[in-house]
Design a protein around this nucleic acid. Structure first.
Lengths: 217, 217
DNA sequence: CAGGAAGCGGAGCGAGCGCTCCGCTTATGA
DNA sequence: TCATAAGCGGAGCGCTCGCTCCGCTTCCTG
């Protein structure tokens, strides 16, 4: 609700608006470079702004995440739409995963922003809602064309992101494209021809929500 | 060097030895239940021992990890040896991964202890050295029998652990056996019949060491 | 059965983090 | 131009966590 000036009851003072913009891009840069774990102070430093200013605009770190979420999600959704536009459903499916992993690899904050975190925040939930049908169409289309194994479900997609994200995290500094190897192995297991009965059902939406909802202890 | 009384220049006083034992088992329990992130204070509380006592025996948290490492690794190595004893190499390979993941699922500290962390510690390195040939034999044997794809290498095993560990982390609280589904997908991609050329070479030992070595920034 | 080394406990330090408070500065508009 | 509301900065709070310090207690030894 805070991020875009929607109904400017009174527009921000010019310097304030400039500062806000600086904070948002500093946040974007900092998250990409170091992940959402970066101290808020580091963001303030990058934005050349005091802590007070930062917190005036974004009263909690979560609000910074929200402010950056939209763009990150746009890239994510763009990848899905691009994939759906492709004729060959399997190529689309595979290309989608490749693009998403590439995004993760070059933006350390993305996975926290998308896959986990900020679960309660309304905006994050809205975006997940927007993404869901795209993932479903992506998988179902690839299944209809006989390429993707039939027992894979849209609810398995986050699992793929979790696993891939971990591999990216571990290897980004050492072999930035290594995730492609892991994805290759996984994709070979997702082809319909390779399918062997799976020993466990997919997560339900409810389980997925709880798994995403953090609070690990 | 501290964990087992090897050359008792002077044996510990009886109460001291008892405390030490209590600390070690409290550590084991705490790591299993909450992962290595558990505060040292919590371990002291479980052991019913003061902070001073704990730090007298184990001057750094890393030393606690070392003290517990051995048992955790024993289970790990036991799984590998059991797998190598099996006739069917693929069944052994698969069974090994299943056992390791099961261990991870019921012991939240295991993955930190084995796969990452404490990279420099001599004992951890010694154990990795002991594990390495087992992993290699496990993969090569399965390849010789034509079950495991030929382009998989022993250096890919940690990658499998990373990915699986992440899935376990995310789902343990919600569907404790869900990791079996992820492993099923992955295994289908590891079968020789499913193999498609991989887009990236495996990690070298050196890269693996650096990836394991932490220091993410 | 003492004298003294070995061991114990827990208050507290310092560092890192998210976040707040409030005296000072600056853009705005009458 | 200048009064005033809006905005700014950064010291500092409160919390967690790894770790230290040191006065007191307990066990071993002669």
């Amino acid at each position: 609700m805070t991020a875009r000036a929607k109904a400017p009851a009174r527009p921000l003072r010019r310097d304030a608006q400039a500062n806000r913009d600086r904070i948002v891009s500093a946040t974007r840069a900092a998250f990409a470079a170091e992940g959402v774990e970066v101290p808020v102070e580091e963001i303030a430093r990058r934005a050349e702004v005091g802590m007070g200013t930062l917190y005036r605009h974004f009263p909690a770190k979560e609000d910074l995440i929200d402010a950056v979420l939209e763009d990150a999600f746009a890239a994510f959704i763009g990848a899905a739409e691009q994939a759906l536009a492709e004729q060959d459903a399997w190529a689309g499916f595979r290309g989608f995963l490749e693009r998403v992993f590439a995004l993760h690899a070059e933006n350390r904050g993305l996975k926290d922003i998308i896959a986990m975190r900020a679960h309660g925040r309304a905006r994050a939930e809205a975006m997940r809602t927007r993404m869901r049908p795209l993932l479903r169409r992506l998988t179902e289309r690839a299944q209809e064309q006989g390429a993707l194994r039939a027992d894979f479900t849209a609810e398995d997609m986050p699992v793929v992101f979790w696993a891939g994200g971990r591999v990216i995290e571990a290897t980004a500094a050492v072999a930035p494209e290594f995730w492609r190897r892991h994805l290759g192995l996984l994709l070979d297991g997702l082809r319909a021809e390779a399918a062997t009965p799976l020993p466990h059902p997919p997560l339900t939406r409810a389980q997925l929500n709880r798994a995403t909802g953090r609070r690990s202890g």
